[in-house]
Simulated scan of single mutants.
Amino acid sequence: MASGLLALLDDIALIMDDLASATKVATKKTSALLADDLAVGAKKASGYASERELPVIWAIAKGSFINKIIILPAVFVLSYFAPFLITPVILLGGVYLSYEGAEKVIDFIFHGGKDKKVSKEMTEKEKIRSAVITDFILSLEIIIIALSTVQDKPFSVQVITVSMVALLATVGVYGLVALIVRMDDFGLSLMVRYEGVLKQTGYFLIISLPYVIKALSVIGTVAMLAVGGGIFVHNIEFFHSISEKFIPYISDILVGFFIGTTAVSAVKALKRMKRLFYSNSS
């Protein structure tokens, strides 16, 4: 009886050690994407009135949790029964990310980055929807990369490890996003309650926030292009061979911008054709 219990405890210890090791490797492999997810998340969650910041972040975080609930079982099923479908799905996600990034760049170049005037309520809903869709694609990429690092492990270890990485991608990322967008409130609290260095720190946090948000907005756009382009570089030989002529991250951005501008042009062409069709039919 005692020997059986000791054997069971030994097995549990080995599984826990295997899980810790696998999670560490998977997190390291996905760290760059988690950083990109943070930049994109902060970009998507900024630009609201102070009282709407946390509700918007919470809405995006809930959408992110739902994304994980959908993606995790779907990826495990695809990986087991139809692994050949994973790459096309990722490529479609790469097109979307590249499209979003390129659209922002084109809008900044030709319109100074000014958004069209729409109602405040619709703008908020559209931003949340866009953030959740972007999170879905980044989450899919993170989960698939995490799964690729534990393919040689037992299925139970794969499920737990990838699920832990997915949870980190939501709790960690949107927790940090919430801290960033509320940085000014924390700074104000320091200024009101303390004197000396802490008061100066609070003032620095307040005046720094607009610059941090602007920087994250730029980083988020670049991240979308880099992740979108990186998907094509890593999965399409043609783009991979071209990328070898450039610095790795730069090549991902260039490929992402090329894919994105192509997608933007295609969407605009389709919209023109749609308008012409309706004008002729009327």
Results as ranks from 00 to 15, higher is better:
Leu5Asn: 09
Leu6His: 08
Met16Leu: 15
Asp18Trp: 08
Ser21Glu: 04
Leu33Val: 00
Leu33Thr: 05
Ala35Thr: 02
Leu38Asn: 00
Ala42Asp: 09
Ala45Tyr: 00
Ser50Trp: 00
Ile57Met: 12
Lys68Gly: 06
Lys68Ile: 04
Leu72Tyr: 07
Pro73Glu: 01
Phe76Tyr: 08
Ser79Pro: 02
Phe81Cys: 11
Ala82His: 10
Leu85Glu: 08
Ile90Gly: 00
Leu92Gln: 05
Tyr96Pro: 08
Tyr96Glu: 02
Leu97Val: 00
Ser98Tyr: 05
Ser98Val: 03
Glu100Trp: 04
Ile106Gln: 15
Asp107Tyr: 03
Phe108Trp: 13
Ile109Glu: 13
Ile109Leu: 15
Gly112Glu: 13
Gly113Ile: 05
Lys114Ser: 07
Lys116Tyr: 08
Ser119Phe: 03
Glu121Val: 06
Ala131Trp: 01
Val132Glu: 04
Thr134Arg: 07
Asp152Lys: 15
Leu168Asp: 06
Val171Phe: 01
Val171Ile: 10
Val177Glu: 04
Val177His: 02
Val181Asp: 03
Asp185Val: 02
Glu195Cys: 07
Ile207Lys: 09
Thr221Asp: 12
Ala223Thr: 04
Ala223Met: 05
Gly230Pro: 11
Ile231Trp: 08
Phe232Gly: 11
Phe238Ser: 14
His240Glu: 11
Ser241Asn: 09
Ile242Tyr: 11
Lys245Ile: 05
Pro248Gln: 10
Ile250Met: 14
Gly256Ser: 07
Thr262Asp: 04
Ala266Phe: 09
Leu270Thr: 12
Lys274His: 10
Phe277Gly: 12
